[in-house]
Nucleic acid binder design. Structure first.
Length: 191
DNA sequence: CACACGATGCGCT
DNA sequence: GCGCATCGTGTGG
């Protein structure tokens, strides 16, 4: 049995909104503490620089924390917040341009609805910040497939105070790992 | 150096 | 719906 394939650099080095949508259905693999953790991505949010005031890279400003967002695509951006939670992002865009996709919900792994729970389920912490998902032997993203009925819902992001109207959140309709559903967006999608 | 606050989750009302 | 735990990080003095 061979190891699963993984997304390569070119899959991440694209516009953040494109990567966000395409990550839905893909599977994160992480070997930690002698065990494999894996979860299928069912909810994500895009964060960029230009015009996105909710982003850690708002206004294109570099800080020690967000520097990984400005680097080459395909690296893990893990940050710590609220004194107790970690969140896991995948860096996007070309080198020099900030961008990341926040992993907000996983299926196939226990209690992983919400970014902090998803990060905990994957056993990722600040120490994993900057790992290369393209070359790391114990952390990567497997290409995914979606069933025809797994429609992609696009809506606004959660838990932010700025740029609240940007439709930068994507999730798979009817997936259990989705943290919060948008009924209006869903009925519009269903037509 | 001091301080305000956050890309959250949980328990209680 | 609301309060709160708990600390890394950014900002300003």
């Amino acid at each position: 049995m061979s190891l699963p394939s993984r997304l390569e650099r070119t899959a991440f080095a694209r516009p953040t909104l494109t990567v966000a949508r395409r990550l839905l259905g893909c599977v994160v693999w992480h070997r930690a503490g002698g065990e494999w953790r894996r979860g299928r991505i069912v909810e994500v949010e895009a964060y960029i620089g230009d015009g996105d005031l909710a982003s850690h890279a708002a206004n294109g400003k570099r800080t020690p924390r967000n520097r990984i967002m400005f680097g080459p695509a395909g690296f893990a951006y893990v940050y710590f917040t609220y004194g107790m939670h970690h969140c896991f992002n995948v860096v996007t865009e070309t080198d020099g341009r900030p961008g990341a996709v926040l992993i907000r919900g996983l299926d196939g792994i226990a209690r992983a609805a919400g970014p902090a729970l998803a990060c905990r389920a994957l056993q990722l912490t600040l120490r994993d910040n900057g790992r290369d998902l393209v070359t790391d032997p114990a952390l990567w993203i497997e290409p995914g497939r979606r069933r025809r009925d797994e429609r992609v819902v696009q809506t606004t992001r959660i838990g932010i105070r700025k740029s609240v109207d940007l439709p930068y959140r994507f999730y798979l309709l009817d997936s259990p790992g989705v943290s919060r559903r948008d009924r209006a967006a869903e009925s519009a999608l269903r037509g």
